[in-house]
């Protein structure tokens, strides 16, 4: 069964990397959006294979909605021609250099350190018996209460900001 699982992992990983690559190589921003959805979908599959179905479902729900909005933006606002792409060519070069450096760094770190799992308070048996969703819920509302609430205030600020921006024109 292990071989099957590995094979499955490699197939999904291949799709994830390919679609991630296509996100930046597609000429049309809409196609980039579709491939971005594919990448996130593959990540959701990884969550499922890691026994975290709740994360997988949330991943699809949140990102599917977010990318939808992105695509709408592209349709409604941007009608990018090739002139814009040429104008921002120096930015593209900068991004290539930066991400190349980052890749180099990651490779060096990976070569130096040894990767060992660090056992936390949550074990695989606990996930099996208590339930993955319950564990996340408990952690969010007890240990991580403050960060969770701070994130919600951040979202509230964003909503108020959006309303102010939308109302200004009227």
């Amino acid at each position: 069964m292990d071989i099957l699982q590995q094979l499955f992992f490699y197939v999904v990983a291949f799709v994830a990397v390919t679609s991630g690559f296509l996100v930046i190589t597609c000429r049309n921003p809409i196609n980039s959006g579709i491939t971005l959805v594919m990448t996130f979908f593959c990540l959701a599959i990884f969550y499922v294979t890691l026994h975290a179905p709740f994360m997988a479902a949330i991943q699809i729900m949140v990102y599917a909605g977010a990318i939808m909005v992105l695509i709408i933006f592209v349709i409604m606002l941007l009608n990018l021609g090739s002139s814009v792409v040429i104008r921002y060519r120096h930015a593209v070069t900068g991004a290539v250099v930066a991400s190349g450096l980052m890749l180099f760094q990651v490779l060096i770190i990976l070569k130096q350190g040894s990767v060992n799992p660090v056992p936390g308070s949550v074990s695989a048996e606990m996930v099996e018996s208590v339930g993955h969703t319950e564990l996340i819920g408990k952690a969010l509302f007890t240990d991580f209460m403050l960060p969770f609430e701070i994130a919600s205030i951040l979202l509230l600020v964003a909503i108020v900001g959006a309303i102010i921006l939308a109302k200004r024109e009227v």
């Binding site: 479902a57 729900m61 599917a64």
Partner: peptide, 15 residues
């Protein structure tokens, strides 16, 4: 039988 059956349905509707 997914642990998160309902969320799965909502996610698929979103897709």
């Amino acid at each position: 039988d997914l642990d998160v059956g309902i969320l799965f349905i909502l996610a698929m509707e979103g897709l």
